[in-house]
């Protein structure tokens, strides 16, 4: 069900004009330390490539 929600959310955010790469979803088990590190590295790389977010940002 989480998979379904994310499938819909990702498509929708992309549709309204948020870069698709900002919404990232994956499965990691608590015992997969190395995978966790890899995923985070991957996510940071993707987000770096996009630069700072300017959409849906609340300036306080």
């Amino acid at each position: 069900m989480a998979r379904r929600k994310f499938a819909a959310l990702k498509r929708f955010l992309d549709y309204i004009g948020l870069e698709g790469d900002r919404t990232i979803f994956t499965w990691i088990s608590a015992s997969e330390g190395e995978r966790f590190a890899n995923v985070i590295k991957g996510v940071t790389a993707k987000v770096r490539a996009l630069g700072p977010a300017s959409k849906l940002v609340n300036k306080l």
Binding site: M1, R3, A7, T26, G42, V43
Partner: peptide, 18 residues
């Protein structure tokens, strides 16, 4: 309701796998 069930073959090409 579609968000209260899932099917094995639901799309998952969006899942991030580094």
């Amino acid at each position: 309701p579609p968000l209260s069930i899932f099917k094995e073959h639901d799309k998952e090409d969006f899942i991030f796998n580094p």
